[in-house]
Amino acid sequence: MSNFSFPESIKSRPTYARLEPRAGKSYLFVADAEGAEAIIDLASNDKSLMSKSHVIYIPKNTGKKYTLQLEKLNINQLYIGPSYSAAQSRLRHTLVSSHMGLQLYLSGTEGLIGQAQRDAMVAGIPHTAIQSEHRGSIGRRMQCVHCKGITEDVDIDPYVCSHCGLSLFVRDHYSRRLAAFQGVCIDAEEPGNIPTAVELYK
C-alpha cells in the first residue's frame, strides 16, 4: 500500500486527503510515481471523469509499473514525462490557458505536490481549492535556510545540504511559496557535534 499516515504536526505542515470528484469545467491531474494509484482509484469511482481530463504523469523510479494502467483509462490527454522540470513548461502553459472552473488534482510525493501547487498558485488557483493526496515515498523537498539550496527526496534527519555541505535538521515548518520544508544547521552552537542520521518516521 502506498499510503502513509503522517503523525499530527505543526500548523504549517501540509496535510493530505483522498482525491474526490468535484464539480468543474475541466480537470487537470499532476502525479508522480505511486501517485498514479490515486488517479486509478478516482477513475474507478467516476468513470466519465477521465475522458474530460488532462493527466501529467512522472513515473520516477516506478518505471512502467503504472503507465500501462493509465493508458487504459481512456484519458483525454495523457502525458508521461521523465521529470517535473521537464513537464513544467507544459503544466504552466496548460494553467495560463485554462479558464475558471478548472479542477486540479495532485498525487504522489510531497515534492511533486508542492511544486505543482506552487505553479498553480502563481496561475491564480487558491491553494485551498487544490486537492492533493500523498502516495509513495515520504522523502521531502528541503530548503537549506542558510544557502537557500534545495535538496530533493530527503528521507533522513539530519541530512547534508547538497549545495553548501552543512548538516541540517529536518523541520516540519513548510513554505508553499518555496514548495519546501526548512533545513537548519544542527551544529551551529557546537560545530562538529552532529548526531547520527536516522530515517524519517522510523
Binding site: 505543526i10 500548523k11 504549517s12 505542515r13 530548503q143 535556510v145 523541520r171 516540519d172 515548518h173 513554505s175 508553499r176 511559496r177 518555496l178 526548512q182
Partner: peptide, 13 residues
C-alpha cells in the same frame, strides 16, 4: 521562508 503564510502557519513553531 515565511512570506505568503497565514497567521497560524507563521506562528506554527
Amino acid at each position: 521562508f515565511d512570506i505568503g503564510m497565514n497567521f497560524f502557519e507563521w506562528h506554527a513553531p
